[in-house]
Every structure is written in C-alpha cells, then in structure tokens.
Simulated scan of single mutants.
Amino acid sequence: MRPLILKQALHESLNPLANAQKTIRDSCLLALWHELITFPKPGLVSLEDSGSHSDMSASHFSSSIFALRFYFYQIAEAGSRGLKFEVLRELGVSSEQRMLAATNGRNTHRGAIFNLGLLAAAAGYQLKNNIQLKSLGEIVTELWGEELIKHQRSTESNGFKIFKKHGTGGALSEAQSGFRTVYQIGLPAYRKLLFQTQDLELARIHTFFKLLSVTEDTNLLHRGGLDGLLFARNEALSFLHEGSVLNPDWQQHAVSIHHKFIARKLSPGGCADLLGACLLIDYLDLTLDV
C-alpha cells in the first residue's frame, strides 16, 4: 500500500495540472480564512466575537474551512474537464454534509461552497485550456450559465423565500451574471485600497463595506426584511462617505456599526461570501500563470 501512495504522490508532484489544482484549493482556503479573521465585519463572526450568531464561533468556521479542503481540489479538477453543473452541484452537496458534520449542524459556508466552488471550477478549466482573455466569471457563465438559469431552488431554503417575496436572486443571480458585483465593485475597491495603503486587512474591511453598500444581501432580508437591508446599506454608506478606513477614527465607527448590527441581529453573510470571492480571484491572479 505504501509504495502505491508514494507513487501517487510522485505522480502528482510531476503533474503541473495537479499542482495547479492544489494551488486553487489552497487559494480557496486562504480566502475563507482571511475573510474569517477580518474585523470588524458588522454582524459577522470573526476571531474577536460571534457577531449576531449566538450559535456559532470562529472555531466552527475554522473547522468548516478544514473540512472543505478536499472539495475545492475536487471541484477544480471537475471544472478542468468542463463537467456539467449537475456534477459540480453533487460535489457541493457532499461538501455541505462534511461542513455540517464538522460544525455540529451549523451552516458556516454554504454560500462559499457555491460561489468559491464555481470560481475554483472555472480556474481549473482556465488553466487546463490555457484561456487568457476571459475572466473566471465569464467562464462560469459560458460553461454553466444556462444550467444555472434552469437550476431549481429548494422551496425550503431561505433564499427561495426571499426570492419569492422580494424578487432578489442572491448568490444564484450573482453567479449567472458572471459575478458582476465582484468584478465591478469588490475587486476594484480592494485593489485600489491595497495600492493606497499596502495593508491587506484595511483593504478587506474597505471592500466589505463597499459590498455592503450595494448588495441585495438575502441574509439581511431574511433576518431584517427590507428595513434591515436599507439600514445596513445606510450604515455602510455613512462609513464610506466619512473616508472609510482612511479616516483616522475609522475603527471606532466600524465597531459601532458592528454593535448596531448585533443589536438588530443582522448578519450580511452574502457580503462575506462576495468578499471571499474577491480575495480568491485576486489570489489566483497572483499565483497562477495561464
């Protein structure tokens, strides 16, 4: 058995595509970890506190991230072969089961399994086929866009209920658009602030508030209705208009908003997922040569 394992390890070390899939996996895990440790993110779990989630902690999220390590490798490999969305969906469902087992039933990363999974699959396809002129978002819509449109939402999900009530598509619509919010809002904000400050955490915080100011976050709608969404957007706009993280008093303002979200039990998990997608795309751009 041991020689077989060594032979497989040697094969992978000599296989550029396998190494690229490991890089995609590692970039996904790093994006999730950096999203988790970013503070403050109003209402959300971090290493500092549990935000608006009395049933979750950072340890649940870190356990979940570890449990997802094989999924991101698998879906990058499946994407490299251009497999159907149904195959990717089945991988996602299996990974959700591993997530729930690792967190004792807490839904820590269902949105990230969907968003980052599709982007990882697109990255695998991009590398396998040496595609240089298309973004990962464009590859997602080209390969799986029609299947995403046909994809049936679960009538039991919060996302479906929000869609029926408010007409807001959430993560599914974002993916169908080729991750428009990520590419048009999140990534430019992240890269501009990072260029200005050379500070990764400040760039992540600024990007989160930028996303919060524009995103129709279905988690906010589920917890606080339209009033909750508008409140969250106004708080984010106030933070941005006062200079965001370039204001000397930014931290006090951001923490104050965080506590307001906790008091209202608001949790913009959709924005956290979009931040993770921004980070993943940026990391892949830095580490992978197509």
Rank of each mutant, 00 (worst) to 15 (best):
G243M: 12
L119C: 03
Q74H: 11
L119Y: 08
P248S: 10
R69V: 00
K210D: 01
Y183N: 06
A236M: 07
D273R: 10
G111H: 05
F239D: 04
E35S: 02
L4E: 15
I5K: 14
L187H: 00
L100P: 03
R233D: 08
L274S: 03
R2G: 11
A112Q: 09
R25G: 04
L246Y: 01
F163K: 12
E12W: 13
A78F: 04
S57M: 10
L44W: 02
L136K: 00
E138S: 09
D282N: 12
S177T: 10
H259W: 14
I5V: 15
K192N: 12
F72G: 02
F261V: 10
L143N: 02
G92S: 09
I5Y: 14
T38V: 07
R81Q: 15
T103S: 09
Y125R: 05
G167R: 12
K210H: 13
F85E: 02
F231M: 13
K161S: 12
F66E: 11
A272W: 02
L127A: 12
A254K: 08
R204Y: 09
I162K: 01
N115V: 01
E147Y: 03
S62N: 03
L274H: 04
R223S: 07
E201M: 14
T155L: 14
N130A: 15
K265V: 06
L172F: 12
Y190K: 07
K164W: 02
I281M: 10
V182I: 14
S57L: 11
L136Q: 04
V245C: 15
G117M: 06
L284K: 06
V290T: 11
D285K: 11
L266E: 02
A263Q: 14
G117T: 03
G159C: 10
T155V: 14
N104P: 05
G225V: 15
T218L: 04
F160D: 06
W144N: 03
L266P: 08
L266K: 05
H109W: 01
K210I: 11
